[in-house]
């Protein structure tokens, strides 16, 4: 087909990996192994429905309701499933609680295992070699990079996620947050505070 590139510029050619992904998608669709509508649903879910807001709700309820907190610490998988936040990959969820004596951090040294149903897709830094390698070796230096300085007497524990086990950090409830509603409390819970690279925001 004759084609004049100057008068009718062609569609923008996507980068090489994008072409390869399209090739896979075409092959698998033709074989009936995937349904493009399912792919759209998955992307929509992760882009618009799942994110750190889910985790923040869990943390805020744990702060407000001792019974919920105890159940969460005992079997987070069941509690989180009850709330409708299902682990798509069948993983177990474990909640680890920060205290004045212990600060928890989460990493996946092998790849990027992460509590998707509660926090969504991990940020790039979580997937970077720099974080994955350093947080185990020098967690306090990593915390300093995130602007977090812990008291000397606070121990740091780093949890290494796996395909089967994902962790959610329950940050310490900030001072001055007494009397706030669950939704107001949830607004204080950042994504980073649930990975352990941040603290809950101070109540205003």
């Amino acid at each position: 087909m004759p084609h004049d590139h100057h008068d009718h510029p062609h569609a923008l050619l996507p980068p090489e990996p994008a072409l390869r992904v399209k090739a896979l998608e075409t092959i698998l669709t033709r074989k009936g192994l995937i349904d493009p509508r399912t792919l759209d649903q998955i992307i929509d879910t992760y882009q618009n429905k799942i994110g750190p807001k889910n985790g923040a709700q869990v943390v805020a309820r744990a702060w407000s309701d001792p019974g919920f907190r105890d159940a969460l610490m005992q079997d987070a998988t069941a509690v989180v499933a009850d709330l409708g936040y299902f682990g798509r990959q069948g993983e177990h969820m474990v909640a680890v609680e920060n205290t004045p004596d212990l600060h928890n951090m989460v990493v996946c040294t092998l790849c990027s295992c992460y509590p998707w149903p509660l926090l969504g897709i991990p940020p790039a830094w979580y997937k970077s070699d720099a974080y994955r390698a350093r947080v185990v070796r020098e967690p306090r230096a990593v915390l300093a990079d995130f602007g977090v300085a812990l008291p000397k007497e606070t121990a740091v524990r780093v949890w290494d996620s796996t395909a089967e086990m994902r962790y959610l950090v329950i940050p310490m409830r900030p001072e001055g947050s007494e009397g706030l509603s669950v939704d107001e409390l949830a607004a204080l819970v950042s994504r980073d505070s649930m990975i352990g690279t941040g603290l809950a925001k101070v109540a205003k």
Binding site: P15, P17, V21, K22, L24, D40, Q47
Partner: peptide, 15 residues
């Protein structure tokens, strides 16, 4: 959430 559309596509394919 995804820096480029193909990141989202290959992620969704896998899931």
């Amino acid at each position: 959430v995804f820096l480029h559309p193909w990141h989202a596509q290959v992620f969704a394919l896998t899931v």
